[in-house]
Design a protein around this nucleic acid. Structure first.
Lengths: 219, 219
DNA sequence: ACGTGTGAACGATTTCACAGCT
DNA sequence: AGCTGTGAAATCGTTCACACGT
């Protein structure tokens, strides 16, 4: 079991488990069973046990999981038990929103520098950081040992931003721009596609309405 | 084939297909093959044909797909060929970023009202809209026929916001707050989990580094 | 001849059911 | 007795390979 490839879906669910564990923790629970977790996550107990077992034997048979140690184990498994140093590329509204979001720091993602191609934005202060020119990116990334780039440019600037980040030898990129970008294989890449979510919602609402209408007809 | 349940993964990929179709369209292409689409999406032709065939026979055998009519067909399939009226709940940085994002309007998601529980924010102007009290939500939703609620509150306020939206008889909710919320079955719900993406990136970077280290050892 | 649409084969993930530890 | 960890079974999604229409 230990050395099997871990499904991407499992990784995604880990974020949910962490979130509900924080709640159990806040409520003072010391132990939690896969049943309780499943209820809180709208999942099922077998799924949860299987998911957790990919990473190790965190539970105690007949008892359940110790909340605090499970939180830590998950964080370690995802490598979010330390600090990741990030650079933001794109000093627009979305960039500002991420920079101002306290949850990022709380979860160990520290945004330490902001870049933008637009010369009008250079020097502009966003919270505690000044917007810098992309020409300084390579230097800053090296100096501050920055590992992750976050792209919040408009779609037509996203590839250029990615090129700058790759050039600066970043390890991974999260992009919020609704466009595909190309990076070398050795750079990790994740898309946050806002519209995908809205499209899913749209499809889901319409499907339900259609099903409701068909039920009417069945009378 | 027509009346089979459509995988969620297929729906998600539709957003990508639309995106690359926009690019083909901009480049003046009138026809595309599943092969070309696959290259642009980093997918494979069979996947694309299967996905598209869930919704109808959009292609021409021996020829390919007509770009414009395929775009329209996908939009119709997802029900994003019209306008969805949205209300934003949570007038913080993230809410402002969504409100100021031109892509939303371009894609038919119109944010028509903004609400916030914080009395200090009432009346505050965000772009062309004034922040309103949640007590007005029911009235505004009915008056403007708003269908979708967008939650951008801090996590501890998200459930309350959801309750207000459900009470106002909204059809679906997209929440950006990193916390699970409960809504009745008849309301559609989608989570935009920013941290899930960052956690995946973190895991992926670490996995690669670990694999690289093991390769070293194999010498 | 070419490229779609689709059953069939394959592969991956989820769920079941129970052995094994506390 | 209770709850985890995990093979085995069931389900779900993807890829193959080819019949079919243009």
């Amino acid at each position: 079991m230990k050395h099997r490839r871990i499904p991407k879906a499992t990784i995604d669910r880990m974020a949910v488990y962490l979130e509900v564990l924080e709640n159990f923790s806040r409520d003072g629970a010391e132990l939690v069973s896969s049943d309780q977790l499943a209820k809180a996550c709208k999942s099922n107990p077998a799924q949860i046990r299987k998911d957790l077992a990919y990473f190790g034997d965190f539970g105690i048979r007949g008892v359940g999981y110790a909340v605090e140690s499970l939180k830590l184990a998950i964080k370690r498994a995802l490598s979010i038990d330390g600090v990741w140093r990030c650079a933001l590329f794109g000093a627009g509204n979305l960039g500002r929103a991420l920079l101002g979001n306290r949850e990022f720091v709380r979860r160990g993602f520290h945004i330490q520098a902001v870049f933008d191609c637009d010369p009008d934005k250079l020097g502009l202060r966003m919270f505690h950081l000044a917007v810098q020119s992309p020409s300084r990116l390579g230097h800053i990334v090296k100096e501050q040992d920055i590992q992750i780039g976050i792209i919040t440019t408009p779609p037509n600037r996203a590839q250029r931003a990615a090129n700058h980040l790759v050039e600066a030898d970043i390890k991974g990129i999260v992009t919020f721009a609704p466009t595909r970008i190309n990076v070398p294989d050795e750079v990790s890449l994740q898309y946050v596609d806002l519209f995908r979510t809205f499209y899913s919602l749209s499809f889901d609402i319409s499907l339900r309405e259609q099903e409701a209408a068909e039920e009417q007809n069945a009378d």
